[in-house]
Design a protein around this nucleic acid. Sequence first.
DNA 1: AAAATTGGTTACAAATGTATAACTATTATA
DNA 2: TATAATAGTTATACATTTGTAACCAATTTT
Lengths: 161, 161
Amino acid sequence: MSEERSIIDDIADNLVAIFPIVAKTYTKAVRSKTEFTPATLFTLGALFHHGKLTMSGIGNHLMVPKPHVTVLVDKLITDNLVERLYDESDRRIIYIQLTEKGREIFLEAKKIIGKEFRDRLEDLDIDAKRRLLDSSSNVKEVLVDIMKDIYTQNNNCVKKQ
Amino acid sequence: MSEERSIIDDIADNLVAIFPIVAKTYTKAVRSKTEFTPATLFTLGALFHHGKLTMSGIGNHLMVPKPHVTVLVDKLITDNLVERLYDESDRRIIYIQLTEKGREIFLEAKKIIGKEFRDRLEDLDIDAKRRLLDSSSNVKEVLVDIMKDIYTQNNNCVKKQ
DNA sequence: AAAATTGGTTACAAATGTATAACTATTATA
DNA sequence: TATAATAGTTATACATTTGTAACCAATTTT
């Protein structure tokens, strides 16, 4: 019990320690090497992985309020990176999906961002690389799994009772 | 060679995938559960781990321009969380270090932030926990090592030639 | 001693992100 | 049919972060 407690604490410490390093590397690369902001790139990423999402769906995935989603999507639409799809059966719903250009630009941006890490990973020896691949895969999978419900939280902007 | 190439790409992909998950969980917790902004908490963290730093040193660690460091430190000083130490032998240099209150508050905040992760990690079985601890430790250690030179980059604000 | 460099601050502008309220249009419920 | 709920937008205000320029004081260099 107290051992499990300490294991959890150590994992949490590791995750909290990993964050600023990846955060700085990631956002610096996004800002300096692409035309995107972190939020718009996250938006493209969510659409890339989920095919199409409603406005609210995007908000849940990114955990940003609905009004901000409108702003983000508007920006992407003017650049022709995403498009609106109107639902025939429920005309309140608007689906957003990547355009072909959006897919291409996103993959390109992802590659550029990843390069920041790649350049530094080069120097590791092959065993360290294999081990890091295994570790990072495990961390990613577990995180995606245990955090997946954050995507269903309602953090939309609603009228006050 | 092409295998190593692909390993590196996969690692980079994992890191880029991990980021938004940790980012959202972390910054949401910081904003909603503490009085800090991510940047001020990073500042405290850097000071916690390095004992004392100059203003420029903080800027390098956090990768923020010097004028912003002044703002961040000023904020922390008014709350009595950090203090200035004037260097006797070079009076241009100002060291910043945590006060006792700063240490306590930081540890408390870290615990609160970590709780977000802890609550979700509870449900994993013991083997998954051990494996995740091992994986996250590995990722953290390698990242700290290969990214450590980012702290020596000069991103200060300098007069244009 | 004059000039250049370094460490830090002040001031200001702009971009980005967060938060709330009020609103339209559509659909579901009673 | 009246009411409530849902999906999304518009508007506004504010906090945070980023970027640039100019500046002072102290130190080094020449």
